[in-house]
């Protein structure tokens, strides 16, 4: 009987029994060639894969929660997300990230209509829908209809602002702190902040 922790690559029947596809073959071939040529080492590849796996929306959620309980931090976050993230020990990378703050009057939502730019170092990998033709095409033209599909119905008096990430800048939505969370600590608040809250397709909800 095998011990699960002995095997660094647990068998994944759905993936590993699938036929070897053309693009997977190309990927493995390029990796092998570039390693042989010394462009990067096997160790660098392994560490980069670990780095990718280590990122999740929990990092972004910590920033949002801290901004709700610490007004000075919020100011610093709005001024420079990458620097504010460093304060919490989060490496947000070299591409500048800008926080766009919701208010009672304004709801922000982010998209990249030209490709799929996304604040990956704070939110992890982008969801498939963020990269889809439907989202990229429609959200700039009919944001309210798209948000309604996500279950978000915005009142008439709220202005929707769509941010199209067309340059080397990434956007992070800073949602409003929901009512009924007075006195909550940072981890409890962070648990309310989902990935979609920081894209702008959801709002934090207090379980009731």
């Amino acid at each position: 009987m095998s011990h699960p922790h002995d095997d660094p690559h647990p068998h994944q029947p759905d993936i590993e029994d699938a036929p070897l596809g053309y693009h997977e073959t190309l990927t493995e071939a390029l990796l092998a060639l570039l390693r042989d040529k010394g462009v990067f080492s096997a160790d660098e590849l392994r560490r980069t894969l670990e780095e990718i796996d280590s990122r999740s929306p929990a990092d972004g959620a910590r920033l949002v929660a801290r901004s709700w309980i610490d007004p000075a931090f919020r100011e610093r976050l709005l001024h420079d997300v990458n620097a504010a993230a460093r304060e919490l020990g989060i490496d947000a990378g070299g591409i500048p990230i800008r926080a766009v703050a919701d208010t009672e009057q304004v709801h922000n939502v982010i998209v990249c209509t030209l490709c799929s730019c996304y604040p990956r170092l704070l939110l992890g990998a982008a969801p498939d829908w963020y990269k889809s033709r439907a989202y990229r095409s429609r959200v700039v033209r009919e944001p309210r209809a798209v948000l309604r599909e996500f279950g978000l119905e915005l009142p008439d008096e709220v202005q929707v602002v769509v941010h199209d990430a067309t340059a080397e800048l990434r956007y992070l939505v800073l949602p409003c702190r929901p009512a009924g969370t007075e006195g909550w600590d940072e981890p409890a608040l962070a648990a309310l902040v989902t990935r979609d809250c920081m894209i702008g397709t959801a709002m934090p909800i207090v379980p009731g």
């Binding site: 944001p143 202005q159 602002v161 769509v162 941010h163 199209d164 340059a167 800048l169």
Partner: peptide, 8 residues
């Protein structure tokens, strides 16, 4: 009255 912002 809604808006879209792009980096140009």
């Amino acid at each position: 009255s809604d808006r879209t912002v792009a980096d140009l």
